[in-house]
Computed example of a mutant assay.
Amino acid sequence: MRAKNCPCGLGELYADCCGRFHEGAKTAPTAELLMRSRFCAFAVADTGYLLRTWHSSTRPRTLWLGDEQRWTRLEILGRTGGGLLHTEGTVEFRAHYVHQGQPDHMHENSSFVREDGQWLYVEALG
């Protein structure tokens, strides 16, 4: 299989970028990198990773990703906290996708917390 660039947009190879988080070899050190790795998990349909990185207070029991939507590009618009020394943070982003052949995007400001050294997605704000 040919090596591919990671869908998260950082320009690295998938295996060296978000792939290492998806495999469990490492955990995302910042809220932004967790957001990028979660976008990538949507792009590669890794529901296991999405559920593992979702805070238990808001995590659904199951997650189904349909075949009719393809995630294509991520833009990080802003962030607060979420760094190496923080326990909370937010990441504002625009996620582009194609749904049934039509391009579209979603805009969200997500909250994250770090528990036991691991960043977790909590919820979309406002």
Rank of each mutant, 00 (worst) to 15 (best):
L34I: 13
L120R: 08
E123L: 01
G9M: 07
V91E: 00
H105K: 07
L63H: 01
M106H: 00
R36L: 10
R94M: 00
E115T: 09
T47A: 15
L125W: 05
I76T: 05
Y49H: 12
D67A: 13
G66C: 04
N5F: 05
F39K: 00
G11P: 07
P29N: 05
D46F: 08
G101R: 12
P60Y: 07
T30M: 05
L84P: 10
A41K: 06
D46P: 06
L65T: 06
A28N: 08
D104S: 15
V122R: 12
A25L: 10
R2W: 02
G11S: 08
W119V: 07
R79L: 08
L34C: 08
A3V: 07
A15S: 14
Q69R: 15
W54T: 08
C8Q: 02
S56T: 11
H96T: 04
C18T: 02
C6I: 08
G126T: 12
E88W: 00
L50Q: 07
F112Y: 15
Y121N: 01
E32N: 10
S56G: 01
E92K: 12
Y49I: 10
A41V: 06
A25H: 08
L10G: 06
E12H: 14
Y14C: 07
R20I: 14
A95I: 07
N109I: 13
G82P: 04
R36Y: 09
L63E: 04
E108Q: 14
T80C: 10
H99Q: 12
T58V: 09
L125H: 05
L10C: 03
T62F: 06
H107K: 00
C17N: 05
E12S: 11
T62V: 05
F42T: 03
P103L: 12
M35N: 11
H86E: 14
V44G: 04
G78H: 00
P7C: 02
L50C: 08
F93D: 01
P7H: 02
N5Y: 04
T27F: 13
Y121L: 12
D46C: 10
E75G: 00
R70A: 12
M35D: 03
E108H: 10
